[in-house]
Design a binder for these strands. Structure first.
Length: 549
RNA sequence: GCGCCCGUAGCUCAGCUGGAUAGAGCGCUUGCCUCCGGAGCAAGAGGUCACAGGUUCGAAUCCUGUCGGGCGUACCA
């Protein structure tokens, strides 16, 4: 119906003030204060300057013009400095309700994204240890964003990029080798100074098949031994991460190994930049002229020792995405990588993708609070709260909901004690409770032999809380579309709280199961529609919608 | 030094491409169950939107500067 009003307004503007006025960017929004109507536009104010007329005068002419027509609008009023407020007739809302009941699990899905191919790359944690809480936040954010894109009609793919090449991985191999020697009782294993001290490597070393490992290590050089152990460590730890993520509800279309880019992808990308004249040698290394694209310094592609940098591999990786048809790569990075954005976008421009082809979202840090005190984490020393710990501690649903209540870039205080509480202090229960309550009413009705009816007379829903609830439910597809377009999954939690609130108010004011069987049918239909929205919304976040609790 | 993020109620945070009297949850005060789930509903107290300028019909929102907090500034990844 927004579109209908849009076209009504557009036509009226053209007829009254000419094509220039009709071309204005029409802003139509739901007023914060519901007494202002269902939708409002500020068009009279924004045209005041070009038309050289006072806004209220423009509004008056516009309204007079619209009122001469037969529309579905119940009223059109002018308010404040020149807002035009529209009130929509209740029959339209009843149609909207019928639409929800018809679409069921598909309600909320739109084609807003027009099949635009995007890729969301997220978590991408180093395979050097278990996942931490920032990874958990990024995972909830990323997989919800992926589902939002899907629901909003984008063509979306998801990937986890595994940094299985480089010095960190060498250190990991050396660390595991040392642990292995220790576990085998040879005692000569010494973890490198800046190696990985975490106890999980002991566990991992114990799981290794000694016979097989000893055979594969025999007669090998130190670096070969290290590489063998690196491969074991990466595969074990990666599988471990995948298992934890799956338990958390996060899955990827593909796990992309950095080593898949060697040597071909890396060489090709390097040559391409070279052909464009964007590479120069300095101090024995090969540098990308990033400063030509706005970066504050040039960046090394190939080190003096001949090894490609992580940066070059990352360029090859993004080239791979582009050649697979991705039109927009949305990378979700941790807070320690924001200094890397400019460099990457400069390179994307150099490669001809355009700087905006790569969109980076930074998921900010998480402060875990317990007993009001901050829980400190250090990956190297192996002291941290892992994703697994978190799920065990507060549960998957609570963890997800907490992460998804906040914007990605806001620093998050995560109160473990609060998330653990199974009472009304914990916001996740409010929405789940609404779902359980709705389910309970529908169940009760069925038990009493009052079943739902396909042809319930929805026009019987005339009470203020009933219409208010329908209006909230009606916004769901727009919420999904805007959450996807703005990359802001937190709009979903905010919205679902609104839905729950509107439902609770309706429930409190309007008795569903009564002697009036027609009204009972209509209200049961409204309950069902509410259940559909809450359930669809929670499932976008992979949070359960319980029938009872 | 330079760059990025953040600064909104006692606490944790929303505030949609600038819009009408700045909101929610928790906490605090007070009402509401003979009746479909009270894990609920209603009412109240609580604000110089860090500060100062600017842009305009209109700024929490955009621009500049200042002050706080965090992070980053590698031939690490």
């Amino acid at each position: 119906m927004e579109n209908e009003i849009r076209s009504l307004l557009g036509t009226a503007l053209g007829e009254l003030f000419g094509p220039e006025a009709a071309a204005v960017n029409l802003v139509l929004e739901v007023p914060r204060d519901r007494s202002h109507g269902d939708l409002a536009t500020n068009v009279a104010m924004s045209l005041a300057r070009t038309l050289k007329k006072p806004p209220r005068k423009i509004a008056e002419e516009l309204v007079a013009h619209l009122e001469g027509q037969d529309t579905f609008l119940e009223s059109i009023t002018i308010a404040g400095p020149g807002f035009i407020n529209f009130r929509i007739g209740s029959s339209i809302w009843h149609h909207s309700l019928a639409d929800i009941l018809k679409k069921k699990t598909a309600y909320g899905r739109t084609h807003a994204g027009e099949d635009f191919p995007v890729m969301v790359e997220y978590v991408s944690a180093n395979p050097t240890g278990p996942l931490n809480v920032v990874n958990a936040r990024a995972a909830a954010f990323g997989d919800t964003l992926v589902r939002l894109f899907d629901a909003a009609g984008y063509k979306v793919a998801s990937e986890f990029y595994i940094n299985d090449v480089g010095r960190q991985i060498d250190l990991l191999g050396e660390s595991l080798l040392a642990r292995y020697e220790q576990v085998q009782g040879r005692g000569e294993g010494q973890i490198p100074e800046d190696g990985y001290q975490g106890e999980y490597l002991i566990e991992l070393a114990q799981e290794l098949d000694a016979k097989e490992i000893d055979a594969s290590l025999a007669d090998k050089s130190d670096s070969e031994k290290r590489d063998i152990m690196s491969r074991h460590a990466v595969e074990k730890l990666r599988a471990w991460q995948e298992k934890d993520l799956k338990a958390y509800g996060t899955q990827f279309d593909r796990w992309f190994y950095q080593h898949e880019l060697y040597p071909q992808g890396v060489e090709d990308t390097f040559k391409l930049l070279q052909e464009k004249g964007l590479v120069e040698e300095r101090d024995g290394a090969q540098w990308f002229r990033a400063t030509q694209f706005g970066d504050d310094q040039d960046r090394v592609l190939i080190r003096a020792n001949g090894d490609p940098t992580y940066f070059l591999a990352d360029l090859a990786y993004h080239t791979s995405k582009e050649s697979r048809g991705i039109k927009r790569s949305i990378d979700i990075w941790g807070p320690d990588h924001h200094g890397y954005i400019e460099r990457m976008q400069s390179a994307m421009e150099a490669l001809g993708f355009g700087r905006d082809w790569l969109e980076v979202l930074i998921v900010q840090q998480v402060n875990l609070l317990s007993d009001g005190k901050q829980v400190k984490m250090s990956k190297r020393k192996g002291e941290f709260i892992t994703l697994q710990d978190l799920i065990e501690e507060v549960g998957k649903d609570a963890a997800r909901f907490f992460f998804l209540q906040r914007r990605a870039e806001s620093h998050l205080d995560f109160d473990l004690d609060l998330a653990k509480k199974e009472n009304d202090e914990n916001p996740v229960f409010y929405v789940k409770y609404a779902h359980a309550r709705i389910s309970g009413v529908i169940r009760k009705a069925t038990e009493q032999g009052v079943s739902e009816s396909q042809d319930a007379d929805l026009s019987l829903l005339k009470e203020a809380p009933e219409l208010a609830l329908i209006k909230v439910l009606h916004r769901f597809p727009a919420i999904i579309a805007s959450a996807a377009a703005q990359r802001e999954p937190h709009r979903l939690t905010t919205y679902l709280r609104e839905v729950a609130q509107a439902f609770h108010l309706f429930y409190h004011e309007c008795r569903v199961i009564s002697d009036n069987s027609d009204l009972t049918s209509a209200r049961l239909a409204l309950c069902r529609a509410s259940q559909i929205v809450v359930s669809n919304g929670l499932s976008l976040m992979d949070i359960s919608a319980p029938e009872r609790m």
